[in-house]
Simulated scan of single mutants.
Amino acid sequence: MRMLAETLVALAAAGGTGVVQAAGTDAWPGFRQRVARLLGRGDAGREQAESERLDRTAGALDASADHEAEQTRIRQQAAWQTRFETLLESLDEAGREQVETELQALLAEYAPLGVTSAGLGGVAAGGDVNIRADGGIAAGAIHGGAHLGTPCTPDPSQG
């Protein structure tokens, strides 16, 4: 089996994240159809199977209890990353380039505003990040603007 280039692994990971983020949103029907078509590669039976798999993912994400939601998201994201990696690994160079282009276009079209990215071993977020350690050590690094400490007291004229 051929190893994927780092950029293709990152693209597959973005695809997995996209599936999880789109599930349950107004964008889901169109996104779901395009992902199923991409993974089906022109085979109606495979496309139908992928559509059903996508529906099961959306159902699992919707049905997960609050305390299980993050683990469910992680599992589903990893499963879809693997599906995209498997597809990319199975193709010749021309097919891989075509799928890469299609997946990039799909993700660009459905990407939420404020897209973020991180390198290997990094975490990027377009919103709040909470770091917690239950009986262990937690650490975080901020690259960019941040203010830590007690907030400034507002001027009385500000209310």
Score class of each variant (00 low, 15 high):
residue 156 P to T: 09
residue 85 E to T: 01
residue 88 L to P: 00
residue 151 P to S: 10
residue 125 A to T: 05
residue 24 G to L: 02
residue 91 L to K: 01
residue 158 Q to K: 13
residue 106 L to I: 00
residue 29 P to R: 07
residue 97 E to D: 15
residue 71 Q to G: 14
residue 135 G to W: 02
residue 40 G to V: 05
residue 6 E to W: 09
residue 55 D to F: 05
residue 158 Q to M: 13
residue 46 R to A: 13
residue 71 Q to S: 15
residue 76 Q to A: 09
residue 35 V to M: 09
residue 50 E to I: 11
residue 96 R to L: 09
residue 146 A to I: 08
residue 150 T to D: 10
residue 27 A to H: 08
residue 75 R to W: 08
residue 14 A to N: 04
residue 63 A to I: 04
residue 122 G to T: 01
residue 79 A to R: 07
residue 54 L to C: 03
residue 75 R to V: 11
residue 51 S to P: 03
residue 34 R to Y: 02
residue 156 P to W: 09
residue 126 G to H: 05
residue 70 E to V: 13
residue 141 A to P: 00
residue 95 G to P: 02
residue 118 A to K: 05
residue 31 F to N: 00
residue 94 A to L: 07
residue 5 A to M: 09
residue 116 T to C: 11
residue 82 T to S: 12
residue 49 A to R: 12
residue 157 S to V: 14
residue 37 R to N: 10
residue 44 A to L: 12
residue 74 I to M: 14
residue 13 A to L: 13
residue 154 P to I: 12
residue 146 A to G: 08
residue 4 L to T: 01
residue 72 T to Y: 05
residue 73 R to Y: 08
residue 25 T to K: 05
residue 26 D to I: 11
residue 135 G to L: 07
residue 117 S to N: 11
residue 5 A to V: 07
residue 34 R to Q: 12
residue 57 T to W: 06
residue 124 A to I: 05
residue 100 E to H: 01
residue 2 R to D: 09
residue 151 P to F: 11
residue 143 H to G: 05
residue 125 A to I: 01
residue 151 P to Q: 14
residue 111 A to V: 00
residue 43 D to E: 12
residue 22 A to D: 01
residue 41 R to E: 15
residue 68 E to G: 04
residue 65 A to I: 07
residue 47 E to F: 01
residue 62 D to E: 14
residue 71 Q to E: 15
residue 123 V to S: 09
residue 93 E to S: 10
residue 24 G to E: 03
residue 124 A to S: 08
residue 59 G to V: 06
residue 136 G to S: 15
residue 77 Q to I: 00
residue 132 R to P: 06
residue 78 A to N: 13
residue 44 A to Y: 10
residue 148 L to P: 03
residue 119 G to A: 08
residue 18 G to D: 04
residue 38 L to P: 02
residue 112 P to S: 13
residue 2 R to C: 06
residue 27 A to S: 14
residue 89 E to D: 06
residue 103 L to C: 03
residue 144 G to F: 10
residue 10 A to F: 06
residue 43 D to K: 11
residue 58 A to V: 00
residue 140 G to Q: 10
residue 11 L to R: 05
residue 114 G to F: 00
residue 101 T to W: 07
residue 37 R to K: 11
residue 52 E to C: 07
residue 45 G to W: 07
residue 85 E to F: 03
residue 74 I to E: 15
residue 10 A to C: 05
residue 79 A to F: 10
residue 113 L to N: 12
residue 157 S to T: 15
residue 100 E to D: 07
residue 142 I to F: 11
residue 14 A to C: 04
residue 150 T to R: 12
residue 123 V to T: 15
residue 53 R to I: 06
residue 135 G to H: 01
residue 125 A to H: 01
residue 36 A to Q: 01
residue 93 E to P: 03
residue 126 G to D: 07
residue 80 W to R: 02
residue 63 A to M: 07
residue 71 Q to I: 11
residue 68 E to Y: 09
residue 140 G to P: 00
residue 91 L to M: 04
residue 35 V to T: 06
residue 53 R to Q: 11
residue 30 G to S: 02
residue 115 V to R: 13
residue 59 G to T: 05
residue 26 D to Q: 15
residue 133 A to Q: 04
residue 53 R to E: 12
